[in-house]
């Protein structure tokens, strides 16, 4: 059928797709170009190409510290958010209970809070409670926004879950815990994994919540902002590129892990015969 479509129609679809892709990825490309200069200032077109700023950035202890803080926060957020969101999603999509409709709306509302306002209000609360701002308070702040997102992502998987699977396992002699471990968890795993990726990446790239709540600790997005406001060096686009590529890399690694697990499962199935 497709081959019968007029040639110009196919060409138009390709042109449109290319335009959208360029629109989305050109800024990222500019970031990469801006990092590959040997001069001190940000000038287009680039006159002197070089990787001097890449070397400086990777050698900097300060940058290492930033990575550690950002990773630590994102890791804690992921673990806590997925745990809360999994059970939240089961309540959201699996069980029918009085008040579920209201719960569904309330739990998603924080996604739409303006994050800078949310950050400020959390800062005021932490102060009122006498807490010192640090990466731990940032974890809490991120959770307020990321748990709802994560709940929504996992809920999508839970909606397609047939409750009869749990009943069947229970009927076949499994305890409630065995049902959860052998059936519920593995069947929901793809959703849980995407929820975890979402949580990690949203925390990794978050700026407005971190700005108010990290205190003396600094995350990569905060550092980038501070440096752009005052003291720009081509180290900024270097770090920006590394951070972006790192996030993209994580997505690919995550995908690769899923593919690998599937292959291994298929292989072990075959060897059992």
């Amino acid at each position: 059928m497709n081959s019968l479509a007029p040639r110009w129609r196919t060409s138009l679809i390709w042109a449109w797709t290319a335009a959208v892709v360029i629109f989305m990825y050109l800024p990222g490309l500019c970031l990469l170009l801006a990092s590959m200069t040997s001069s001190r200032y940000f000038i287009f077109p680039i006159t002197k190409w070089g990787f001097a700023w890449w070397e400086k950035t990777f050698a900097s202890l300060e940058i290492h510290q930033l990575f550690q803080t950002s990773l630590l926060i994102a890791f804690c957020v992921t673990v806590i958010a997925v745990t809360i969101a999994l059970f939240g999603a089961l309540a959201f999509a699996r069980y029918d209970w009085k008040g579920r409709s209201i719960y569904q709306k309330i739990v998603l509302l924080p996604i739409f809070f303006p994050q800078s306002v949310l950050g400020l209000s959390l800062l005021l609360w932490f102060n009122a409670l006498g807490l010192t701002m640090s990466w731990q308070t940032a974890v809490f702040a991120h959770l307020v926004w990321i748990v709802p997102v994560c709940t929504l992502v996992i809920s999508i998987q839970v909606y397609s879950f047939d409750p009869a699977l749990e009943e069947a396992a229970f009927d076949l002699g499994a305890t409630k815990w065995q049902v959860f471990r052998e059936v519920t968890l593995p069947v929901l795993f793809p959703g849980i994994f995407s929820g975890a990726l979402f949580a990690f990446l949203l925390s990794w790239g978050n700026f407005p919540l971190s700005l108010y709540t990290t205190g003396a600790d600094t995350t990569i997005p905060e550092y980038l902002y501070a440096k752009m406001v005052a003291g720009y060096t081509p180290g900024v686009p270097v770090l920006g590129t590394v951070s972006t590529v790192g996030a993209a890399g994580l997505l690919l690694v995550g995908y690769a892990i899923i593919v690998m697990l599937r292959r291994r499962r298929a292989a072990s199935d075959q060897s059992e015969v």
Binding site: A164, L165, E167, D171
Partner: peptide, 19 residues
Amino acid sequence: PANKRPTCMVFQSLALFPH
């Protein structure tokens, strides 16, 4: 409870474990 009864059911949806 169902998991302690010496009975077993074949479900309408079959409820085979997809994984």
